[in-house]
Design a protein around this nucleic acid. Sequence first.
DNA 1: CAGTATTTGCAACGATGTTACATGTAAAAT
DNA 2: ATTTTACATGTAACATCGTTGCAAATACTG
Lengths: 132, 132
Amino acid sequence: MKNTLKNKDISQTPFRRDVLKIFNSHKNAIPLSVIEQELSSYNRVTLYRTIKSFIEKNIIHEIVISGEESKYALSKENKDTPYQQHIHFKCRSCNILFCSELDKAITISLEKHKIERLDIQAFGICNKCNIS
Amino acid sequence: MKNTLKNKDISQTPFRRDVLKIFNSHKNAIPLSVIEQELSSYNRVTLYRTIKSFIEKNIIHEIVISGEESKYALSKENKDTPYQQHIHFKCRSCNILFCSELDKAITISLEKHKIERLDIQAFGICNKCNIS
DNA sequence: CAGTATTTGCAACGATGTTACATGTAAAAT
DNA sequence: ATTTTACATGTAACATCGTTGCAAATACTG
């Protein structure tokens, strides 16, 4: 099922549809620069605002890695489905960055601190790069 | 044992000593703005370059969390000690951010992808905030 | 102490992201 | 379907962040 702007409490505009279309056409997380390349024309300010409202509406989420350009990926979870632990995997060979759900949830305990949520980033070599 | 600039392949200057002193006086990760406040005077460019070289020499590391100012913390590991999994904990009440080592290493498998390193960020309520 | 390599401060620049405001457009109301 | 209203967009200006080139100062080497 395609991600749409409907039922997201956000008004539908041509620009937002174009941006969402780009996210739907990418399996993996993409940086702003890719979105800019794929838009025939755009306004910098509007794009920033679109990204910001998509994040607020939980349509996408931001993935930041130290020293790298932020990337964005469609969020699978929404208000109806509970939070699922998911991991971001980054391949150091092809630089691809994608999200994946964890089969078994990870539990970490940290002394007397109460952990409510975990963000996990994994770095390594992806399937494809491992073969070739 | 205090962290020093010796044996780090980096020349010692008053400014670097001042910055390092600030890191040594904080148990937790701090943003640039805190360093700036605690330096009686400083040059913006020099501070950026100092932070960058401290990161390169693995004296400190950067912790980035989506939507927040980057923070920096002293690195415990250096070239002599092997990489240890460590976790960043952020308290959503007092906003403190600190690093902690994991007693037992976490293993995650992701289909056919080869994971070499994990970064884990935990969010919740810290010990102190939990009590009060 | 002299020579060399590195660091610093300054000025200028470029990239990134935000704000105010006028205009345009989508959604809601009639 | 038309009006009304709320929200989204484009523009310009601005603020912040981080970098670069260069000259002067300082730390390290012999």
